[in-house]
Nucleic acid binder design. Structure first.
Lengths: 165, 165
DNA sequence: GCTATATATGTGCAATTGCACACGTTATGC
DNA sequence: GCATAACGTGTGCAATTGCACATATATAGC
């Protein structure tokens, strides 16, 4: 992806397609914003996760970043090679390798911060808090609707939606 | 992706991340719905495009389906191999190869139709037309905000948003 | 008409992904 | 305590992707 193709949305396109398109475009935009830092969005998100929550197992990371486990594992390895994170065996459970953000990674994050924030600000410009909340609530409904097991762990999202409103 | 990982959304996650997550989950769901038909979402979407709009060039298809051109080209080749579509040189412009939906492809689409519609209905269950319109309008704003060249071809999306409301 | 440029597509190659499987580690039931 | 299952991770492999480049065709400027 990552090109500025002129998307022509058609009226008959179903809503979920609009969603998918816009998401793709956001990803492209973010990737473009990060390109000068030689980072991809998943890499940035992974490190941001670690910055927010401290060391995590590969498995937890994969859940948080929404990437397959094996892919996450290899992603982490690549970032270890670049010195952004480290992997160390957890003392409590020897299966788990805790992924820890390193100083180099922290610096990378700091370097990207302005750019990401700018991009985000531009993206949501002109939308009121109320509209954003409404938007998140709708996303929440969609997520709920996809959940086969009824009422799940979605309280987080709901709380997030509320917090943003 | 395509697994039912328990995503734990955190309050501090920025809105665009929720968007990305839900989109990913929708994609997973749709892919799961199509799996028994041995189709992927992009393949389905590509054929649906052809069904809606008739024969298209690979280039147009790539714009409509939101996939890189080379990827689209090879995707089409695979579907030609499976007999779902055909490629024929356009008489007007010998560079262009028009991609045409074949009967086998049409049958595939028909076979998938119920499942897709069910999935879509479930996805948007409980949302009023007004809410969906609101949602599409917000998506439109996001798309506008990303557009560097000011007011562009987005009239389509706007019309779509209106039509859906 | 001829050259320069843009367009539509194909191809080679490296990178990434997902899946199936394997391994070591921990938890559970008895 | 031991067998068995569940878990976290790594690895091999096929499939897919994106990019850089190549080719053929069309269009524009002169």
């Amino acid at each position: 992806m990552s090109n500025s193709m002129t998307q022509k949305i058609q009226d008959q396109d179903p809503p979920e397609y609009h969603l998918s398109l816009v998401t793709q475009q956001i990803r492209d935009m973010m990737n473009a914003a990060l390109k000068s830092h030689d980072l991809k969005l998943v890499e940035w998100r992974t490190m941001q996760c670690l910055a927010d929550e401290g060391a995590l197992s590969v498995c937890d990371l994969s859940n948080r970043v929404v990437v397959e486990r094996t892919a996450t594992g290899r992603l982490v390895d690549r970032m270890v090679a670049r010195g952004f994170v480290s992997k160390e065996q957890a003392p409590s459970d020897r299966r788990i390798s805790r992924v820890c953000l390193q100083d180099a990674g922290r610096q990378k994050l700091d370097a990207c911060d302005t750019r990401i924030k700018e991009a985000r600000a531009r993206l949501f410009a002109g939308l009121s808090q109320r509209e954003i909340t409404q938007f998140l609530n709708t996303l929440l409904v969609l997520q709920r609707n996809m959940d086969p097991s009824g009422s799940n762990d979605l309280d987080h999202l709901q709380a997030a939606a509320r917090a943003n409103g």
